[in-house]
């Protein structure tokens, strides 16, 4: 079915989804998805609104459990019951709504849920100095003008995006899941985000990128997977398809490829 699996056989399989389905009551958001993600690969995930892209990402990140089907992680069957489980296996997420807390600073958002602490006697107190400094480094690395001490409340769309992406850089992830990271930001910031994806790629980090922007996908991805109404309708190496074909696959003008 997919030509990419053959091409990528040299790389180890990082994640292997077998027959994954997810229902919300009567809604079948995902129907029997088979898909492999190879280490260090950048895969584009495309599909119309409601196709099931976010649902798939939430399964990979441990936010949802599949209704049926199995996930193999580096060859072993694996269940992610909570987001922390995915994280401990080197999977980081940038959620579509960014999952930011407006009333906290950029640095505290970056470190949310894994705050850096230091001991003062028996007390564990926040190491704010470290968190501000480290967040500053990450923003500099991302070439973002975001300031660690600013509250997220007063930030632009691009800065908020940078905060959410910076969050994935705290550990050394093996796979970063990004849900529409370029949907709500300026053109200049889009190229920044794409630059970051390329940087992750060059460091051997895999990326699963959801985007509606065809040029983004063709600029950075090795492979593109298309979902339509919860079904996988294509899984192709980027060099073996075209923007027209992918558009057709998304809308249904092209049945399968």
């Amino acid at each position: 079915m997919s030509s990419s699996s053959q091409e990528n056989q040299s790389k180890p399989v990082f994640l292997d989804l077998r027959n994954i389905s997810k229902s919300f009551g009567a809604i079948e958001a995902l129907k029997g998805i088979n898909m492999q993600l190879f280490a260090g690969e950048v895969v584009g995930l495309m599909g119309d609104n409601g196709a099931g892209k976010s649902t798939l990402i939430k399964i990979l990140s441990g936010n949802y459990q599949p209704t049926s089907g199995e996930m193999y992680f580096e060859g072993h069957p694996q269940q992610f019951n909570r987001p922390v489980d995915a994280r401990t296996h080197g999977i980081e997420v940038v959620y579509q709504d960014l999952a930011l807390c407006d009333h906290l600073t950029a640095a505290h958002n970056v470190f949310l849920g894994r705050e850096k602490k230091r001991n003062i006697g028996p007390l564990k107190i926040l190491d704010n100095k470290h968190m501000f400094a480290r967040a500053g480094e990450i923003f500099a690395m991302l070439k973002s003008e975001t300031r660690p001490r600013d509250k997220v409340k007063q930030m632009s769309g691009g800065q908020r995006q940078a905060v959410a992406i910076a969050r994935t850089q705290l550990s050394s992830p093996q796979l970063v899941l990004m849900d529409e990271p370029t949907a709500a930001i300026s053109v200049r910031q889009v190229s920044e985000v794409l630059g970051l994806i390329k940087r992750l790629q060059s460091e051997g980090v895999g990326v699963l990128l959801i985007s509606h922007r065809m040029p983004d996908i063709f600029a950075v991805c090795d492979r593109v997977v298309v979902l339509r109404r919860g079904e996988k309708v294509a899984d192709k190496h980027i060099s073996q398809t075209s923007q027209d074909e992918v558009t057709g696959l998304i809308t249904g003008a092209v049945e399968r490829a």
């Binding site: 990140s61 936010n63 909570r82 987001p83 922390v84 994280r87 997420v93 959620y95 709504d97 960014l98 999952a99 930011l100 807390c101 407006d102 009333h103 906290l104 505290h108 949310l112 849920g113 894994r114 705050e115 602490k117 007390l123 564990k124 107190i125 926040l126 969050r167």
Partner: peptide, 24 residues
């Protein structure tokens, strides 16, 4: 001001689902 518990109170009040998703 100085503990993770405090940050988490603010985070929950600010965006509870974000706090859940980030592992608070």
């Amino acid at each position: 001001n100085f503990t993770a518990w405090g940050r988490h109170l603010y985070a929950i009040g600010s965006n509870e689902s974000a706090a859940t998703m980030t592992g608070v």
